[in-house]
Computed example of a mutant assay.
Amino acid sequence: MLRTILLTGLAMLAFAGNSLLCRAALAGTTIDAGSFTALRLLSGALVLGLLVWLRQRGRLGGDWYSALALFGYAAAFSFAYLQLDAGSGALLLFGAVQAGMLGYGWWRGERLAGVQQLGLASAIGGLLILLLPLASAPAAGSALLMLLAGACWAVYSLRGRKTQDPLAATAGNFLRSLVALIPLLLVFRQQLQWDSLGAFYAVLSGALASGIGYAVWYAALPHLRALQAASVQLSVPIIAALAGSLLLGEALTPRLLLATLAVVGGIALVLLSKARAI
């Protein structure tokens, strides 16, 4: 149990770290979103492939569906952060993750009742607070891209619960995702540019926060219920918002704080109520 708690905690820090590294790179260096995505996935694949090889069990795991979900998440995530703060981006991302996981539960026959419905209404209201077209609202296109990233991550997480070898599966998914990079880089070939600091952030995001972080997450997932896996990710927007304020100088606006409270609190009501019913 202690091992699962430690692995889960490390994974949450890695998830928040991805938001911070991506935002720092795209806002503070000349690297573009396509190059950041490519370097992130490539460095993650190289590190994970090396770890699998060093373990002397060279057979890779994963599958194409998970790899495409990983690529969809990584690409949408990078382009969304061109105009989003770390905190608001993480809130949109993991709000969409929870919606995806709850939607999967609904499809499997689970239904919300009483306090759970109130919690869901609160979570939806929190996202609407963040997205309403006021002066401090995030750009609509970027917000939609981050919601798409969240949906892809929900698929990736749900598929990861069946993994027997987390390291091999994550390495295989990263390597397969490189195939999808080819059309992305071709489409944005006129915009590709990067500098040493931006590349460093991208490699750090790919090798450490993504590659190692996702392998750690896949190691924790088999020991978590779907609801537990969903609920622990509620910590990421809070971590990202606080770290973004401390490290990147981003504003903790009343709007973001209210939206975070409504989304995190609402989904917590859904998950805790459902957990008691199991």
Rank of each mutant, 00 (worst) to 15 (best):
residue 22 C to T: 15
residue 22 C to S: 13
residue 22 C to G: 15
residue 22 C to K: 06
residue 22 C to F: 08
residue 22 C to E: 08
residue 22 C to P: 09
residue 23 R to H: 08
residue 24 A to Y: 08
residue 24 A to Q: 03
residue 24 A to D: 03
residue 25 A to R: 03
residue 25 A to E: 07
residue 25 A to Q: 07
residue 26 L to I: 10
residue 26 L to K: 06
residue 27 A to E: 14
residue 27 A to K: 12
residue 27 A to S: 15
residue 27 A to L: 14
residue 27 A to P: 10
residue 27 A to T: 11
residue 27 A to C: 13
residue 27 A to D: 14
residue 28 G to T: 04
residue 28 G to E: 07
residue 28 G to S: 11
residue 28 G to D: 11
residue 28 G to N: 11
residue 28 G to I: 00
residue 28 G to M: 11
residue 29 T to H: 12
residue 29 T to V: 10
residue 29 T to K: 13
residue 30 T to M: 14
residue 30 T to E: 15
residue 30 T to G: 14
residue 30 T to I: 13
residue 30 T to P: 07
residue 31 I to Y: 03
residue 31 I to K: 02
residue 31 I to R: 03
residue 32 D to R: 02
residue 32 D to K: 07
residue 33 A to T: 12
residue 33 A to L: 11
residue 33 A to H: 06
residue 34 G to R: 04
residue 34 G to M: 05
residue 35 S to T: 15
residue 35 S to R: 10
residue 35 S to D: 13
residue 35 S to I: 14
residue 36 F to E: 04
residue 36 F to R: 08
residue 37 T to W: 07
residue 37 T to G: 08
residue 37 T to I: 08
residue 38 A to F: 09
residue 38 A to Q: 01
residue 39 L to M: 15
residue 39 L to K: 03
residue 39 L to V: 07
residue 40 R to A: 09
residue 40 R to H: 10
residue 40 R to E: 06
residue 40 R to D: 06
residue 41 L to Q: 05
residue 41 L to E: 05
residue 41 L to N: 06
residue 41 L to P: 02
residue 41 L to T: 02
residue 41 L to H: 02
residue 41 L to W: 05
residue 42 L to H: 08
residue 43 S to V: 04
residue 43 S to E: 05
residue 44 G to K: 05
residue 44 G to W: 04
residue 44 G to S: 13
residue 44 G to V: 01
residue 44 G to Q: 06
residue 44 G to H: 08
residue 44 G to A: 14
residue 45 A to F: 05
residue 45 A to D: 06
residue 46 L to S: 07
residue 46 L to R: 03
residue 46 L to K: 02
residue 46 L to F: 10
residue 46 L to M: 14
residue 47 V to D: 01
residue 47 V to T: 11
residue 47 V to K: 01
residue 47 V to G: 01
residue 47 V to W: 00
residue 48 L to E: 02
residue 48 L to P: 01
residue 49 G to M: 08
residue 49 G to I: 06
residue 50 L to D: 11
residue 51 L to N: 07
residue 51 L to E: 04
residue 51 L to S: 10
residue 51 L to R: 08
residue 51 L to T: 11
residue 51 L to M: 15
residue 51 L to I: 12
residue 52 V to F: 02
residue 52 V to N: 00
residue 52 V to I: 12
residue 53 W to K: 11
residue 53 W to V: 12
residue 54 L to H: 06
residue 54 L to G: 09
residue 54 L to C: 12
residue 54 L to W: 12
residue 55 R to P: 08
residue 55 R to K: 14
residue 55 R to C: 10
residue 55 R to V: 08
residue 56 Q to P: 00
residue 56 Q to K: 14
residue 56 Q to I: 00
residue 57 R to I: 00
residue 59 R to G: 04
residue 59 R to F: 01
residue 59 R to C: 05
residue 59 R to A: 11
